[in-house]
């Protein structure tokens, strides 16, 4: 940003408030004109701020803060389209269902999902994860057994670790054979919190 000459410094008065308003209007107008290929917003949650990103097809990415939201937006820009813009309204349904989930009022997500960021076997694994019901867990081997490659236990681990839609596609319900939680894209603490919450051992 240009540093203003001292005589003109006061020109910047009120600029921040104007820009905040203008950027909100821009997101809405660009969305209405079909110019936003990747809409996003950030919502608060008990597992930290979550980035929600969606395309015309549906929710395409849920990202935890530890993944670096700016890095995720850069990735989406390269992988899908650089027309990435904050357009909160488009993510209202996802934000609402996540709110309901964390309030203990929703066990199954009912949202259009865009799986374009997961291909091949990873996508096959993700398709099976909703079969693990709320409050239940399955082992990596158990999930592999549901797929076309029942011995691909490590690949199931990779597919879960790289799930573009955590929480909504419940990779947190896949645990180690000994029952310990195992790794999680949102961090071990988040996984353990989610499992205890779904087991009814935490108040919402």
């Amino acid at each position: 940003m240009a540093r203003l000459p001292i005589e003109l410094a006061d020109l910047a008065a009120g600029e921040d408030a104007s820009l905040h308003r203008l950027r909100a209007l821009l997101g809405a107008a660009a969305g209405a004109q079909g110019l936003v290929d990747v809409a996003y917003r950030v919502v608060d949650s008990p597992v930290g701020p979550l980035l929600l990103a969606g395309t015309e097809a549906g929710l395409v990415r849920v990202a935890f803060e530890r993944e670096g939201h700016d890095d995720v937006l850069e990735f989406l820009s390269a992988a899908i389209s650089p027309r990435v813009l904050a357009e909160p309204a488009r993510l209202d349904p996802a934000a609402r269902e996540l709110d309901e989930y964390f309030a203990g009022r929703r066990q199954v997500f009912d949202l259009p999902l865009d799986f374009r960021l997961a291909t091949g076997f990873r996508r096959e694994v993700l398709a099976h994860l909703p079969e693990i019901g709320y409050g239940h867990t399955a082992s990596y081997a158990g999930v592999a057994a549901l797929t076309s490659s029942p011995r691909a236990v490590r690949a199931v681990g990779t597919a879960c670790a790289r799930n573009p839609l955590p929480l909504v596609v419940p990779c947190h319900r896949v645990v180690r054979a000994d029952g310990s939680p195992g790794g999680y894209v949102g961090g071990a603490d988040a996984k353990s919190l989610l499992l205890r919450f779904e087991a009814g051992r935490l108040r919402p």
């Binding site: 940003m1 600029e15 203008l22 821009l26 700016d70 820009s77 813009l85």
Partner: peptide
């Protein structure tokens, strides 16, 4: 590769 358009608005909106 282009940065997300939102970053462009952030960087140059005020100017």
């Amino acid at each position: 590769t282009l940065p997300p358009f939102e970053f462009v608005v952030e960087a140059h909106g005020a100017a």
